[in-house]
Design a protein around this nucleic acid. Structure first.
Length: 645
RNA sequence: GCUGUUGUAGCUCAGGGGUAGAGCACUUCCUUGGUAAGGAAGAGGUCGAGGGUUCAAUUCCCUUCAACAGCUCCA
């Protein structure tokens, strides 16, 4: 056979000579595509454009607009970085240098060479210089012995360790210029297209992520085909920093931390508390409509409770330690989760199959001793409030209940304008079953039912092994923060284990005892994290119903403070949150301050308004909306003041 | 928890071996102004904490705490 059949993404296929290269296919399609092509997907694998294709294949040619294209570009940039670094610092040892979502990094052992901003700039310069030589990335298959010999000679222990773990026959080298790296690829054709380079930061990272190993320097960078794109990216980073919830939380006086109170223990300021309570009201109402019953449980529970649940064994040592009492036989733990308490509520009386499902909801504040280096604003704290609920149901009700919870989560996301979320099915790590409790068949059943429920609601899911909780698989909803970091928000978890451990039961229609299934769920995840992500999502410009201060009443001069007070009183009668700016300042100044504080509406009152009983409406970010009767104003926006439903 | 960086007024930051400075915010006075910063005066700090070196430390050294970045972790 001297031809291969190549199937294109549109389903059409063409024949090419055996050993055709991606770049040749691109040229045959169009000159423009060939010019922009960076890599090619061949039967689901991403290849170099210069690698010959020897069998019938489905292909897709990637450009800068595809993730696969960017990855090849950034992977090649990592090699270019290594080449430049080696040119400037001969003898440095290299770990790994992969592409990431935004750019690339390379782990290097610089021994004791100091490496700061100046060095980063010097390496950037060298990279640009080398990129201009437009050297080809050349792929070469090497035998394991040849690979070992090369890096032994070069004296790079990290690469030797990597090669050690690879099978002979699967090892490839890539070379550009004088630099040779162990690499699976793929790469772009040559260094020329790398036109704009920025090395962003240096951080420590353990070799192979193991803290027993030596710490290497991880150098992050990003590159672009055009200088303008780099500038736009850097601008975007600046903008993202302005949305950081830690910054806005301080500026808008939403929350604070105190060294004296303790790290990771947020203090909610008055404005932040309003925001948080509005979210609670919103969720309470949605839950009551969905058939949940609110419950309240204490902040501590006896150690025995957590021995029963299995949490003590799993987390006891690495958590807040037991609280003692004068009675030495007593020990209590700060509650790290609400489920055991809710199980005990279930147990207060015998249950019939007709009672199920039972749904207990609680805004439960829990405490977890997170590692100090993990704490991060409101997204990772040591004391937080979950919008928690536990659904106790029969096995035949699991899927239906799960779907109802998905609907609730999606309602919440929709109401708050979150469109960019991903759903992750978190499964057990089949290689490490000891990490989990419970029988295999229950796990398999739960994993299957989660996937089915998600599919039924048309969720796009990614299954990730090893991400399950120790008692059951989860469906996690993830969103990204302003700086592109991914956070888990809502979570839904099926649990066959806790009901057994707590010996929960119900009497079935067969008059026999059965064990119910438990579903843990928290659409917000925690109020803390949700508020953090919400702040970044809307850059502090909260929807009207959530805004801590909805309206600023701004008298033109002190002469109209009395009328302003009257307007404010009317607003307050309608439960609208507002304040009167009585300061001896000009109107321009009052407007500026209200704008900076992101107050959604400003009502200006002066001589004309006081005489006519009206207000001059100004909307945040939009400007003057004209003079209106106060009642008309409130009627026009009444829907926006109310909880969404 | 590990590695690195940082810590000066309420906030944002400058400074630097001889006991501190700016802008904004704050207070008072003048001004009563119509859609993003009116003017003047004033008050405000154990320079994160503890120890050391020194005639002298906020500045140099050590320890510690916290924040930040990354790694590891996340019921």
């Amino acid at each position: 056979m001297s031809v291969v059949k190549i199937t294109l993404p549109d389903g059409s296929s063409r024949e090419y000579p055996l050993g055709v290269k991606g770049i040749e296919i691109a040229q045959s399609i169009s000159e423009g595509l060939a010019r922009n092509a960076l890599s090619i997907e061949v039967n689901g694998e991403i290849w170099d454009l210069s690698r010959p294709i020897h069998s019938d294949s489905s292909i897709k040619i990637f450009t800068w607009n595809d993730k696969g294209g960017k990855y090849a570009f950034w992977h090649s940039s990592a090699h270019l970085f290594a080449e430049a670094l080696e040119a400037l610092y001969p003898g440095v040892k290299f770990g790994i240098g992969p592409p990431i979502d935004n750019g690339f990094y390379y782990d290097v052992d610089l021994a004791d060479i100091p490496f700061g901003d100046e060095e980063l700039i010097a390496v950037e310069k060298k990279m640009l210089e080398l990129a201009k030589t437009n050297s080809q990335f050349v792929r070469r298959d090497v035998s394991k012995s040849e690979a070992l010999e090369y890096f032994t000679k070069k004296g790079d222990p990290y690469k030797l360790e990597l090669i050690d773990g690879l099978a002979d026959g699967s090892i490839t080298f890539y070379q550009q210029g004088n630099f040779v790296d162990l690499c699976r690829g793929p790469h772009i054709s040559s260094t020329g297209p790398i036109k704009a380079i920025k090395l962003l930061s240096v951080a420590g990272a353990y070799w192979r992520g193991n803290e027993q190993n030596k710490m290497l320097k991880r150098i992050y960078g990003i590159t672009f085909p055009k200088q303008k794109e780099l500038e736009e990216y850097l601008h975007m980073l600046e903008e993202a920093k302005k949305r950081d919830h830690r910054k806005l939380g301080k500026e808008l006086e939403l929350f604070a931390f105190s060294e004296k109170v303790g790290m990771g223990l947020p203090l909610w300021l008055p404005k932040g508390t309003i925001l948080r309570e509005r979210l609670e009201q919103f969720m309470r109402r949605a839950q009551i409509r969905a058939g949940y019953e609110p419950v309240v449980t204490p902040h501590i529970g006896s150690k025995q409770l957590y021995i029963t649940s299995g949490h003590y064994e799993k987390y006891g040592k690495d958590s807040f330690q037991p609280i003692k009492t004068p009675d030495e036989s007593e020990e209590f733990l700060l509650k790290p989760m609400n489920c055991p308490h809710h199980c005990e509520i279930y147990k207060v009386k015998p249950r019939s199959y007709k009672d199920l499902p039972i749904r207990y909801a609680e805004f439960g504040t829990v405490y977890r001793y997170e590692q100090s280096g993990e704490l991060h604003g409101l997204t990772r704290v040591r004391g937080f409030t979950q919008d928690d609920a536990h659904i106790f149901c029969r096995p035949d009700q699991v899927k239906e209940e799960f779907i109802k919870v998905i609907d609730l989560v999606l309602f919440v996301f929709r109401s708050l304008g979150f469109e960019n979320y991903t759903a992750q099915v978190s499964l057990r790590d089949p290689e490490n079953k000891a990490k989990y409790i419970g029988q295999d068949e229950l796990w398999e059943r739960a994993e299957r039912e989660i996937q089915e429920a998600a599919d039924e609601r048309g969720l796009k899911t990614v299954a990730v092994k090893g991400e399950a909780a120790f008692y059951g698989p989860k469906l996690d909803f993830m969103v990204k923060d302003a700086l592109g970091r991914s956070w888990q928000l809502g979570t839904i978890q099926v649990d066959y284990q806790l009901p057994q451990r707590f010996e929960l039961e119900y009497i079935g229609s067969d008059n026999q005892k059965h064990t119910p299934v438990m579903i843990h769920r928290a659409p917000f995840g925690s109020l803390e994290r949700f508020v953090a992500v919400l702040i970044e999502h809307c850059a502090g410009n909260f929807p009207l119903w959530l805004a801590p201060e909805q309206i600023a009443v701004l008298p033109i001069s002190e002469r109209f403070n009395d009328y302003g007070k009257k307007v404010l009183d009317i607003l307050k009668e309608r439960d609208i949150r507002g304040f009167l700016d009585e300061r001896n300042e000009k109107i321009g100044r009052k407007i500026r301050d209200a704008e900076v504080n992101k107050v959604p509406f400003m009502l200006l009152v002066g001589e004309k308004e006081a005489l006519e009983n009206t207000v001059a409406v100004r909307k945040h970010g939009e400007g003057d909306k004209g003079v209106m009767d106060l009642n008309d104003f409130m009627a026009t926006f009444s829907k926006d003041f109310a909880l969404p439903s």
